[in-house]
Amino acid sequence: MRWINTKPSRATQIALMLAPFLLLIVAYGVTSAARLADNPADKLLPALQTLIDAINRMAFQPDPRTGEYLLWSDTGASLVRLFSALGISTLIALFFGMVIGMLPYVRALLAPFVATISMVPPLALLPILFIVLGLGETSKITLIVIGVAPAMIRDLALKVLELPREQIIKAETLGGSSWQIALRVVLPQVLPRLITCLRLQLGPAWLFLIAAEAISSDSGLGYRIFLVRRYLSMDIIFPYVLWITLLAVITNFALDRLRIAVFPWSNLEAR
């Protein structure tokens, strides 16, 4: 049988799925043990027990100085920034994506502009944002919006343009006005794509968030990582990185479930 036709069974599939993760953990454990055997004071790859202690300290014991549970207060601060920025980006993308995709005049006006803006490296704008908007939340949220919104606008406008011309003509022959067609034909069909688009932008959004927090902040996951870096506290950095990854994975999964729950038809097409 050809390789392209051999498929794993359900059990094999799960085993294969878990394998790389287990391999990573084992590799970490072995290397860490080897280094610690060499030099018990090594800080680079702490033992699993040290990691667990650190997690316990950060998550379940109040900070002696502020009385806060640091992991949770950092998570709260970061997620507020992340989700407000993603919310704003989504609204901007929905509006501009639809008008650019549907109206030839707006497309002529804005499509090249948005394409150009999306080429500006957002991190290069960070100093300007800090100077203009100050060091508070506004500049961080703005950075994420500038980083993800243009790509989302372009993606959504493309999706609108991809709708078969026949569908729009059909809607016109049913007497729909531009507004009615936007509301009942185009909008419902781009919303699932909007969610997918949001999922794809989660990575960049986290990148910009951590970057902004690293440079100027007094709380947040990125802030903490860069703070403890000075003391080479790998026992805190590793769990934080894992936690951030986990948050992103969960958001990604939840958004996809949401799409299928709200737009059941969007999964039928794939049959």
Binding site: E166, A171, T173, L174, Q189, W265
Partner: peptide
């Protein structure tokens, strides 16, 4: 417009 109806070979109905 609504005075002229149309059916194409494909994409004539709304998938959503």
């Amino acid at each position: 417009g609504p005075d002229r109806g149309v059916v194409f070979q494909r994409y004539s109905v709304f998938p959503h």
